[in-house]
């Protein structure tokens, strides 16, 4: 589903964030991406979201060469993925319901669809009672569950999460990853960047390690946790 072929990324200021990076991820996989700060993990995700273009090499997602996407194709490409951020990125003056509904409304979904779908997804992340709350009234873990609901709302085939537990206390962190795990079990491919080794150890999933922009370790096919 996702393929990186000899990808190099050098930023305008000369920083070499990725070097000769090659990787294949199949549909339905759950992949942890680990590595120290500044190793290039976020760069990898930005290339996937087509926020940045590689300096050389090729990235192919669901048969699409990202380098051939035009500016006007980007919205439609991005609708195939859900993005979860470390800092939640919730709109402060919107309720939980509206924050999730926002993602549907801005791609032109009808209010009927919004009324049907939002409660369902809020139910999945266990936040139906908090629908009328504002982000500042929620704990970090709850805010991230809103972020997760928003990422899920448009049925993406891929979830990209950049340190989703970075601002969440450890007990809640486990819960968030467990939810991602559950989402993956229903067929969605999940890519999660983290540097919390304790978390990674609890879930027997594929682990990719990056150092200085290079892929240094790949656990290979995942350990089938549910078998």
């Amino acid at each position: 589903m996702i393929e990186f072929r000899n990808v190099y990324k050098t930023y305008d200021n000369g920083t070499k964030a990725l070097r000769d990076f090659s990787l294949r991820i199949n549909e339905g996989e759950f992949v942890f991406i680990v590595g120290s700060s500044g190793s290039g993990k976020s760069t990898l995700l930005k290339l996937l979201m087509r926020e940045e273009l590689p300096s050389s090499g090729e990235i192919i997602v669901a048969g699409r060469r990202l380098s051939t996407l035009r500016h006007k194709d980007l919205p439609f490409y991005r609708r195939t993925m859900g993005i979860v951020f470390q800092d939640f990125r919730l709109i402060p003056n919107m309720t939980v319901f509206d924050n999730v509904a926002f993602a549907m409304r801005v791609i032109g979904m009808s209010s009927k669809a919004v009324r049907k779908k939002v409660p369902y997804v809020l139910g999945l992340v266990g936040l139906n009672e908090k629908a009328r709350c504002y982000p500042k009234e929620l704990s970090g873990g709850e805010q991230q569950r809103v972020g997760l609901a928003r990422a899920l709302i448009n049925n993406p085939a891929l979830i990209i999460a950049d340190e989703p537990t970075g601002n969440v206390d450890p007990r809640m962190s486990f819960e968030i990853v467990d939810m991602l795990n559950e989402i993956n079990r229903r067929g969605t491919t999940v890519l999660m960047v983290t540097h919390e080794h304790s978390l990674v150890k609890k879930f027997h999933r594929r682990i990719i390690e990056i150092q200085n922009g290079e892929l240094v370790a790949d656990s290979g096919p995942e350990v089938d946790y549910y078998a």
Binding site: R79, I83, I91, N154
Partner: peptide, 17 residues
């Protein structure tokens, strides 16, 4: 900026933004 970033991330077209 936050709102515009979120709109872009979920695939809102330029005109919708």
């Amino acid at each position: 900026k936050l709102e515009i970033g979120i709109m872009k991330s979920v695939g809102a077209t330029d005109w919708f933004i």
